[in-house]
Nucleic acid binder design. Structure first.
Lengths: 212, 212
DNA sequence: AATTCCAGAGAACAGTTGTTAACTGCATGG
DNA sequence: CCATGCAGTTAACAACTGTTCTCTGGAATT
């Protein structure tokens, strides 16, 4: 199905990606609603009007960034929530994975945290949709777990949302730990991991006694 | 201690409040990092230069808004987390209180949710500090509860953070329910309350079995 | 009553913004 | 090989931004 693109299409995609990358960089110090189209094209080194060949507006670009930041994360979620090992092991693994993701893609994480409640409606909606998909997928995986026997679909989804929100909060805290003085960075990261682990453990406890 | 202000000071405070109110209104459809000083003064009906008599910048105004939105909330937090009644009753009461607060001060809630991870550093810090204070206060109240016997300070604070984050998430969901078509608003609000109640209940269960 | 203070007004500045129109040059498909 | 398509350029526009300096009227102080 995948057709090798011509020189033309390839160059276009390259410019498009450059615009996305430049925007993501600029968004580390501001919100999407203040990001100017000229600012982005200037950073890339193309004429302002070239922007319109790829996006209708910066809001449109924002929606594309949501797809880039969250779209490829769905398989990751599934394999993380399910997987083998006892509860404690799974928690450690999940948090380790979040930490690695934040380390690898800090700008993406920052963008999602920032624009989830940000000033640009279409972007908020795009993020909400993706997170809803995540919650649904987490629910599906939870349903497979023997611990979930006797749970209603409704209760599974409520727990899934709790997990998703908790993951986002943890990611945001890892991000905070990442910036700031290099000096005690590792220690700050360990502290975030320590607290997040215990919070997940407590939620897990609540889960095991839900049907009491 | 309170001295009745002269005509002069009174008028100044009035203008200052008008600037804060206008800004809060404008921030319903954008982020602080894109809020212009001229935009605010235009909405109030004063000259752009008048702005500088009250704030150094829009970031400075943002910090003042954080104080306005969260500063007066501390007593409310304390009496909510403690209070009498069994766990179930307390949860219902807390969520009811959040719903009423969002109904009464939607713009404040939106501002905090938006700028907590927003593009203006001093504002993010101001919010982080206030939420830290909340967490500390919640911990203090939790410590008084007989259920917390045998808990370490550290574990109490970890639980307090979980509660504070959960409250913010719930507030943000109530806000989402508030906007949109009037038609099914009440039903959306009930659904948010229903899910949030069960999430709090689950966390409460985890809390009771923490020392097993 | 005379003097000081200061919140707000007014005008001007250099720089920025989004959007339009008409263009150029090169990859593409017939 | 030639005609078409289209990514990116150039130039220009009206509107807007934050900040400066100077000024004014009336409250506050003496």
């Amino acid at each position: 199905m995948s057709h090798t693109l011509g020189i033309r299409q390839a160059q276009k995609q390259k410019t498009r990606q450059a615009l996305l990358d430049a925007a993501l960089g600029l968004l580390e110090e501001q919100s999407l609603s203040s990001l100017g189209l000229r600012e982005v094209t200037r950073a890339v080194g193309v004429a302002p009007t070239a922007f319109y060949r790829h996006f209708r507006s910066t809001a449109d670009l924002g929606v594309a960034l949501v797809e880039e930041a969250l779209g490829s994360l769905h398989p990751m979620i599934r394999t993380t929530v399910s997987g083998t090992g006892d509860q404690e092991e799974r928690i450690t693994r999940a948090i380790e994975l979040i930490a690695r993701h934040v380390d690898g893609y800090p700008a993406h994480v920052r963008f999602i945290a920032r624009e989830r409640h940000g000033g640009v409606q279409p972007v908020r909606e795009a993020i909400r949709d993706q997170l809803s998909r995540f919650a649904g997928e987490v629910r599906d995986e939870l349903a497979k777990d023997p611990v979930s026997e006797g749970w209603s679909e409704d209760d599974l989804l409520m727990l899934a949302h709790l997990y998703v929100d908790q993951m986002l909060i943890t990611a945001s805290l890892f991000l905070e730990a990442l910036e700031g003085p290099e000096e005690a960075r590792e220690e700050r990261e360990r502290e975030v991991a320590r607290v997040a682990t215990r919070q997940m453990r407590l939620i897990g406890l609540g889960r095991h006694h839900w049907l009491d």
